[in-house]
Amino acid sequence: MRDRGKRDLWICWWVFPVFYTLFGVIFVPLTRVMPPPRPDVTADQITAFFDAHSLTIKIGFGLLMVVIGGGSIANGLVAHQMKRMSISPVFAYGYIATLAVGGIPGCLFAGLAFLTATFRPDRDPQLIALLYDIALLSFIGSLGCFATQYLIFALAIFLDRNRILPNWMAYVSIWQVVTELMAAPVFIFRTGPFAWNGAISFYEGTAIFGVYIACLIALLRKAIERQPADERVPD
């Protein structure tokens, strides 16, 4: 077969920065989930929050409903690179599985809960507050799906002798496991550094996530560039 190229890999790679840029636009300026609104507020204040940002929440999370599958495409690309490593495909399949689970409570559910809240602004404020808590606790507090993903990703890089990704990326990924652990207290505290808008639970975790995603995008690009066009990845 002549010139098989690497077109499918490059298409998937481009989805990565586009998806995470949209992710940033949706979650930061539009829906105001990042940085998160306060947990220590009354139901009436929460209702006022939704009233103030209703339009941008609808635009942002409406868009998320359409583009969320970009995350699945990013998963597939990472899993493909993991399958090129000199290890069993267990971790590659595990990577797909953990993120296929995690994408629902860890990302999409925040959107569904916020959209349900803005859908009927005249709802009982206590119920609006319930949706607010569901959204923010599931978004910040879906720990295990991502901790498992980061753990097996790091282990795969450490064990790989083909050097598909550099060892230091494994340490960045281990840092991410730590940030998920540091976010565990969001279920207990409503104020302070361990609340869902806290310095440790949110800001530290998000800063490292930003570094992680930027490194991952750059390293995947390098990995695809170095990958021979006619390489046969074992089934």
Partner: peptide, 17 residues
Amino acid sequence: ATPSQVFAYCYLSAAVS
């Protein structure tokens, strides 16, 4: 006969979610 099987993995991930 695609360059790689990456789209199959993407499809699997999206189908599960």
